[in-house]
């Protein structure tokens, strides 16, 4: 410290000293600044008439559409529809993925019989099933739940199987040497050991089930944010389309953050 006072004047920092948190994480200042710069540039380009407002609405128009959609309760009403479809699909996908994944990983003959087909289906774009599912389950929420379930199911299934296969044999030996039952081995060693994989699956599934619900609504629906996007698109209400995309983005980030928060609580012992 005393050394600092003897420094020549030119060496003194020209900017006012930054607070400690900012010096540690400069991105907290830099990323909002970058966003602001992009938005200003965007606004300028659109206002100057270089790009048609029907192609790219100005940020100010999008914000106006967002405020309007939020105030009128339109986004909330349709958002809740999409959210409940996605959440139901998520729950179904997680339940089915864990159960079937555990069965396939634990029952040797099931693995031999079923796994090749699962790999085949896994390589298929399941989103292509959406029109068929709407025919089967109708225009109501059921078909959207079905699409969300199917596309969120596979990441859950694959990660559950991978996690259970990755079981640490040494920990199993400890339990087996005590005469532990297969069920006990599953509960006390295999399942907890598979959780890091399973949480990767959850993080993917939570995003996929939103996608599934939206695509289901694109194909045919009477409510939901996907339905709203199709409607706004048809009316060339492009600012509203962007506003809904923004809402979807926020929902996605919150859902993902929720899973990561849960992960930190459950996997307190996992340092990776």
């Amino acid at each position: 410290m005393p050394g600092e006072t003897t420094l020549p004047a030119e060496a003194a920092p020209r900017l006012p000293a930054l607070p400690a948190w900012l010096r540690a994480r400069p991105e907290y200042l830099l990323s909002p600044l970058a966003l602001l710069a992009v938005l200003l540039l965007w606004q300028g380009v659109v206002r100057s008439g270089l790009v048609s407002v029907y192609v790219l609405p100005a940020p100010s128009d999008i914000l106006a559409a967002l405020a309007e959609g939020l105030q009128s309760g339109l986004f909330l009403r349709h958002g809740l529809v999409t959210l409940s479809e996605a959440a139901t699909g998520f729950a179904a996908a997680v339940g089915a993925g864990l159960l079937i994944g555990a069965l396939i990983a634990e029952v040797r003959f099931l693995e031999r019989a079923v796994y090749p087909y699962l790999v085949a289906i896994q390589t298929m774009p399941k989103i292509a099933l959406a029109p068929l599912l709407v025919v089967w389950f109708g225009f109501g929420p059921m078909s959207k739940i079905a699409v969300a379930t199917i596309i969120a199911f596979f990441p859950m299934l694959v990660t559950t199987i991978a996690g259970l296969r990755d079981t640490n044999q040494g920990r199993l030996d400890v339990l087996r040497a005590l005469g532990a039952s297969p069920w006990r081995c599953f509960i006390a060693a295999k399942l907890p050991g598979a959780l890091p994989h399973i949480f990767s699956g959850l993080a993917i599934a939570v995003i996929f089930c939103m996608t599934g619900a939206i695509v289901g609504e694109f194909v045919g629906a009477t409510a939901g944010l996907g339905y709203l996007i199709v409607q706004a698109n048809a009316r060339m209400n492009i600012p509203q389309v962007f506003a809904i995309l923004l809402v979807l983005g926020v929902i996605g980030v919150l859902a993902y953050a929720g899973i990561q928060g849960l992960r930190r609580r459950v996997l307190f012992w996992d340092k990776s």
Binding site: G170, R171, D173, V174, A177, A189, P192, F268, W269, D270
Partner: peptide
């Protein structure tokens, strides 16, 4: 029988 293996094999959780 009680066994101690070459690795500790503790449950990390």
């Amino acid at each position: 029988v009680g066994v101690v293996f070459q690795d500790a094999n503790l449950m990390p959780w």
